[in-house]
Design a protein around this nucleic acid. Structure first.
Length: 553
RNA sequence: GCGCCCGUAGCUCAGUGGAUUAGAGCGUCUGUCUUCGGAACAGAAGGUCGGGGGUUCGAAUCCCUCCGGGCGUACCA
């Protein structure tokens, strides 16, 4: 509908002023109309004429367009405002999201935990936005593959193994005495032990480097046993965390150990042609040539670094999915690294590199009470969820069961992550996030449940006239924005746009509801239809964000 | 030093070329209501949009410069 009108305006501009333009109709303040365009102001500069005259000429041509019940109007310096008919406003609620990615294969990689280490609050953040971005692609018809990439080889593993071997006195059987609940804590503390020793103790440092070599070549039987047992613990623990956080399942878990060798070979085979160079015993990519940094791809011990492994990972993903687009979501500390890696990839696999997008997000900063992050203190995702749950219990009804508490807690946490634009750091304040008022996940859940309960009071009814009163029209106008918002959010990969919209929508509804009776009013049938549209949009919106939207709370 | 990101109300953030008056939540203050689930609604106070310069009919938004913060800057991921 909007595109038709934009096209019509473009045609008019071509006819009247011989100017090829791309007019954009944007939502405007309700006092001015439904949509507006600044095309006349733009043209005024181009053809040196008065913008109001231009606007008037365009409007004269546009006036009889079949979609408009009211006259388009010229306002201010030459804005053209369009007022739609009630029918057009109703029609807008039936629009569907552009499925312009129909059947396209899109691979989304996020969360990327490291076996032998904990899943901390930053992983929960990455997981939440990754899951939402994947859902946005799905809504547009894409064939989405959610994957995660796990660092099961490398120095951090060696550090953890050093700690484990020390804690168990090199006795594998001692591992079997550790209870299920203690496993992740045990691994976490072993890693801290190894990591500290690596930095402060030269003997330990040498030993860890040796362990790392054996992680790759698997030449040590005892070490292999410990590795397999503890890696399996880690993977079980990860699955448990994903489930508790309500994430969609990963279709595939890529392992660094599976791609390390291929990555290394890719680098080695591209030395002769000059893409990679040997330098000080290592193999590097000279990013300086492209305004980036030099980075080591194979270290002087002959082991592939994260860089080389990621090249192998890219190759494997390409083979597995022949993706149309590959999206990788990580913290922004890897932004520069990613540019170098992609530039290197572009030298020998330009198609892969060009269809890969890196999204960099900020860090999570906890800012209240006991959970505030201290230096070197890893804040575990499940611990945060637990605190949120305790807090949610306090503000819930006495009869609220665990399922409801869980739904509310997940909504609180995920919404707090999603409502900000991706990129800068996120201040996560537990008290604020679990607050039942204001711009929060629970507020939206409540708004949804409340609307459903209104609808449940009476049966279905036929609506005789769709003519709208002003307050009804305002509400329906807002409901009709949904599709547009989702299109924008998915094109720009910005889930926060949906959060902002849903919150505004709920506010508009609450204002309407405060002064307009639904049940028992003479316009009950029509108003119930409005409530129904509203509740459906809230539900769809929350679903895209992977936030539960229960019928009752 | 160089590169990337950021700086908007006391706090946390939207707004990234357009609308007389820059928006929202929290917090503070004042109201509404014998509730269609009040987790609501109405209102007030609170801003040199980090500073300065430029481009434009129009700048929080684009460009330059300075200040402040974060991240990165070869064998971690």
């Amino acid at each position: 509908m909007i595109q038709i009108l934009e096209h019509a305006i473009n045609e008019i501009c071509l006819e009247l002023f011989s100017q090829r333009v791309e007019a954009r109709l944007t939502r405007t303040n309700e006092q001015f109309g439904d949509y507006s365009t600044n095309i006349a102001l733009y043209l005024a500069g181009k053809i040196n004429k008065n913008s109001i005259d231009i606007a008037n000429q365009i409007v004269a041509k546009l006036e009889n367009h079949r979609l408009l019940a009211f006259k388009p109007a010229v306002a201010g310096l030459g804005f053209i405002n369009l007022h739609f008919s009630d029918q057009a406003i109703w029609d807008m609620t039936k629009l569907t999201v552009d499925r312009n990615l129909e059947d396209k294969s899109i691979i989304v990689e996020y969360l990327d935990p490291n076996p032998f280490k904990e899943i901390h609050i930053g992983h929960a953040y990455s997981g939440t936005i990754g899951d939402a971005i994947a859902s946005l692609f799905e809504l547009r018809g894409a064939n989405v593959h959610r994957v995660t990439y796990q660092g099961d080889v490398g120095l951090h593993v060696a550090k953890a193994l050093y700690g484990i071997l020390l804690k168990t006195d090199n006795d594998v059987t001692k591992l079997s005495r550790i209870s299920n609940n203690d496993k992740s804590n045990f691994l976490g503390s072993a890693y801290v032990l190894g990591s500290t020793a690596y930095d402060n103790d030269q003997t330990a440092n040498k030993r860890i480097v040796e362990i790392n070599i054996k992680v790759y070549d698997r030449s040590d039987k005892l070490q292999n046993q410990v590795y397999e047992i503890c890696k399996a613990w880690s993977l079980e623990y990860f699955d448990d965390v994903y489930k508790k956080l309500g994430f969609n399942l990963f279709e595939k878990n890529y392992m660094e150990s599976e791609v390390a060798e291929e990555g290394k070979q890719l680098v080695l085979s591209n030395i002769k042609n000059g893409i990679f160079q040997e330098s000080e015993g290592a193999v590097i990519f000279d990013g300086d040539k492209f305004g980036l940094h030099k980075r080591v791809f194979i270290n002087s011990k002959g082991l592939p670094t994260y860089e080389a492994k990621d090249l192998g990972n890219a190759a494997k993903k390409w083979r597995d999915f022949h993706y149309y687009k590959s999206v990788v979501i990580t913290g922004h500390e890897q932004a520069e690294y990613f540019k170098v890696m992609l530039k290197a990839l572009e030298q020998f696999e330009p198609d892969q590199a060009k269809s890969t997008t890196h999204i960099a997000h900020g860090m999570v900063k906890l800012s209240s009470g006991k959970m505030s992050s201290r230096k070197g203190n890893v804040v575990k995702a499940l611990d945060v969820l637990e605190v949120v749950k305790q807090s949610a219990k306090l503000s819930a009804d006495e009869d609220a069961d665990d399922v409801k508490i869980n739904d509310v807690s997940l909504a609180a946490m995920k919404y707090a992550f999603l409502k900000n634009r991706i990129g800068s750091d996120v201040a996560f304040d537990i008290n604020e996030s679990v607050a039942v008022e204001g711009n929060s996940g629970p507020y939206l859940q409540y708004a949804h449940a409340r609307a459903r309960s209104i609808l449940a009071k009476t049966g279905d009814e036929n609506v005789e006239s769709l003519e709208l009163q002003p307050a009804e029209r305002s509400l329906l106008r807002k409901i009709g924005e949904f599709t547009e918002v989702v299109n924008n959010a998915s094109e720009q990969l910005m889930p926060h746009l949906i959060c902002t919209y849903l919150y505004e929508l709920a506010q508009v509804f609450n204002r309407f509801y405060e002064s307009n009776r639904v049940i028992g009013h003479e316009r009950q049938a029509l108003r119930k239809k409005l409530v129904h549209c509203y509740a459906d949009v809230l539900k769809k919106g929350l679903q895209v964000l992977n936030i539960p939207a229960p019928e009752r709370i």
